[in-house]
Amino acid sequence: MINTKKKGLATLRRSTLTAITLILFVMVVIAGFISPYFLDMYNLQSLIRDLAFVGMIGIAQSLLLLVGELDLSVGKIASLCGILAGMLMVNGGVDPFLSLGIALILGLVFGLINGLLITKLRLNSMVATIGMSSVYGGINLVLTKGKAITQIPESIYSLGKGNIGPIPIPFLFTLGVLLLVLFLTKKTKTGRYIYAIGNNREAASILGIKVDKIRVMIYAIVGMICALAGILYVARLGSSQSTIGEKWPMMSIASAVIGGVALTGGTGNPAGALVGAAIISVISNVIVLLGVSVYWQSAVSGIVIVLAISFSSLSTIISEKKQKKLG
């Protein structure tokens, strides 16, 4: 009796992620059936390469969502870091890989600025990052005047375009980021503190957790992950574009929420964001594969996304009801 109850509880605890992964799996199977090209190697590769970027940003965003905040400047940080890396190597003549490293650190600094502004001045994260998004976007425009930076050294192309075995390299980076983030959130003290802050900020403070320090740290990590996504995209396109990442803020939040990370904080698994991103990418890929009229695409993918979000919230509602009854 006790044993079965324990098992039931364990499944319920993990239910959202399990359910959403199941949905993804079903979608992939259906997609494979309705379009013969879906499981084509090239299609899968480009699909996975695509979702690697939104997925990576989604994983970063879910860290912030866990403490009950969000960052709407992720896209602009990514494109600014891409531009800066491009300028360093093309105009500055800096070694390409060194430039990438510098861009990563700059991303960290931008994130740090976000975090310090939000914690020290007690700003609302959403409004503050909308503002900072304009600042980073503005710097981008000042630097580039909207022009792309071309003639990026080919030595870094493989980071964005290459594969290891059949797997696109950007996706390996995303998996790497995911593993690090999962280690951070699930295995370390800091990770537990992140969940604690998202659950109850006052209680966390009373427990002696340095709430603001951890919040700043997360913003910095997020900035760095954005920079990574930005420079990988530069490597993929072979040029630094100032317009990349425009949809990343919303897409990353949608991915995380589809994956079961609560907007209100404190619960969810960052891995869900990657699954969420995969669901969004599979939808838009299948729509194109099927040759759905271009005018319908946005509406159809919107409907599926809303369905996916409702599904994850539905499973939460059900699990909560069951939990309450057990109590």
Binding site: Y193, Y195, A196, N200, E202, A204, I209, G266
Partner: peptide, 16 residues
């Protein structure tokens, strides 16, 4: 309001 971490388990609340 200030004590428990409601959505975390008893274990996580104890060891925090």
């Amino acid at each position: 309001k200030m004590g428990i971490l409601p959505m975390l388990s008893v274990r996580e609340n104890i060891t925090i």
